[in-house]
Amino acid sequence: MIIDVIGDIHGYADKLIGLLEQLGYVHNGQYFVPPANHRALFIGDLIDRGPQQLATLEIVFAMIDAGVADVVMGNHEYNALAFATLDPDSSKSKKRYLRSHSEIHTRQHQAFLAEVPFGSELHQYWLKRLYEIPLWLETDYACFVHACWDVDSMAILQPLLTDDNRLTPQGLVVTSKEHSVPFDALERVLKGVETPLPDGIVMVDKEGTKRTRVRVRWWLDNLNSRTIHEIARAPMSALAQIPIDALAENINFAIKTDKPVFVGHYWLTGKPEPLSLQVVCTDYSAAIDSGYLTCYQLDTDNPLPLLADNFVQYRHDQTA
C-alpha cells in the first residue's frame, strides 16, 4: 500500500484539493476517494492561518469518517482545545483558560474563530472532533508524529491518553501546566526539541514572542557536541544574535526506533528531500502564498530507503 503523508494544511483547502486531485483522489460527492492501494495520512496543523478553515476540516474528517485516511494532532489543534478550555484552578470571578487569550494567542487563532465562533455549537462540535485525533501513530512500517518522535516523552504522556493515544480532557489540563514534566513532554512531541540560548540572549520568533530557547534539528547526530548555529531551526537573522561558537547544552534526546519517522511542523522551503536517512518532513510552508502543500508517498512494503523522488508537491502558482 502507498501512504500519502500530507503536510501542514493550515486552512488552505484549495491547496489540499489541488494536491489530492494531483495524487489521483476523486471526490464522490461525499469524500475524496483514494486511488487503488492508497491511503492518506495528515501530519497535523489542519487549522489556523488560512482562509478556508471549515472546508479543510470537512475534507479531512469526511475522509477519516469514510475510513480512507488517518491524522495525527498538530500543536495548532492542541492549542485550539486549550484556548477553549477553562482552567479548573481559576476562580469564578477571574476566569482563566488553559491557553491564555493574549493578543498573540488570539491572533494566531483568529482565522479559525472567524469561521467557527467561540462558544458556538459549531465550535463545540469541532472541539469534540479534535479530541478524536491521536497524538501519534505507529505502524509496522513507520512512525508518524507532528514534531518529534520521542519515546521517552510519549511514555510520560501515555497515562494521560486513551489506549489509541488520544488526549482526554484531564490530559489536556495536566499537559497545559507550564514548568511540569507532562507539559515538557507534550512540547517535545508537538513542537520539537529545544536547547537554551546563552545567558542574556533573547530571540523574537515570527509571531513576536520572545524566546530564551531555540528549536534544534533533532534528527542530526551528536547534538550536544555541535554549535547552536549547526543544529538550530531558526532564521539567520535570529541566529546572528548568538555567538558562532556557542554550544548546544543538555539535549537529552535520541531516536529510539529503526523505523522511518514522518513529521510536519518545520516550515521548510526549497526542493523536498529527506531530513536524514530515517526522517522525513512534509511541511513545506503551505501556510504562506509561496509555500507548496507537500506529500511523501510511502510504500509500506519498502519503507526504506527514504527517497527524494517520493515527494509530490502541489504547485498552485504554476496551475492554469
Rank of each mutant, 00 (worst) to 15 (best):
V263Y: 07
I231R: 02
E273M: 15
L220W: 05
V72L: 10
F118E: 14
Q318V: 00
G74P: 06
P196E: 08
H101G: 02
Y131F: 15
A238I: 01
Q297D: 05
D245S: 04
V193N: 00
T269F: 13
R96F: 10
I2N: 14
H10F: 06
I47M: 04
R215I: 03
F61L: 07
L298E: 06
E230K: 07
A69H: 09
L306C: 03
G264Q: 09
A36Y: 11
K210A: 15
N28P: 05
H265P: 02
L41K: 01
E21L: 08
N165R: 12
S120I: 11
Y97I: 03
P272H: 06
K128Q: 15
L277P: 01
N165L: 07
L127P: 05
L298N: 07
I3V: 15
I43A: 07
Y266A: 11
G291K: 09
S153F: 02
N165Y: 15
K177C: 08
S153G: 12
W126Y: 15
E187M: 13
H109N: 14
P134W: 08
D152K: 14
S180D: 00
R96L: 12
S176A: 12
L130I: 15
T227P: 11
V216C: 01
N165V: 07
S180Q: 15
R215F: 11
I9Q: 08
A286S: 14
E178D: 14
D184E: 15
T294K: 08
V71H: 02
D164L: 04
L298G: 10
Y292A: 06
L304H: 08
R315D: 00
M73S: 00
P303H: 12
V189G: 04
L161S: 06
Q297Y: 03
L172I: 10
D89H: 11
I133A: 05
Q53C: 07
G11V: 05
P272F: 00
L137W: 09
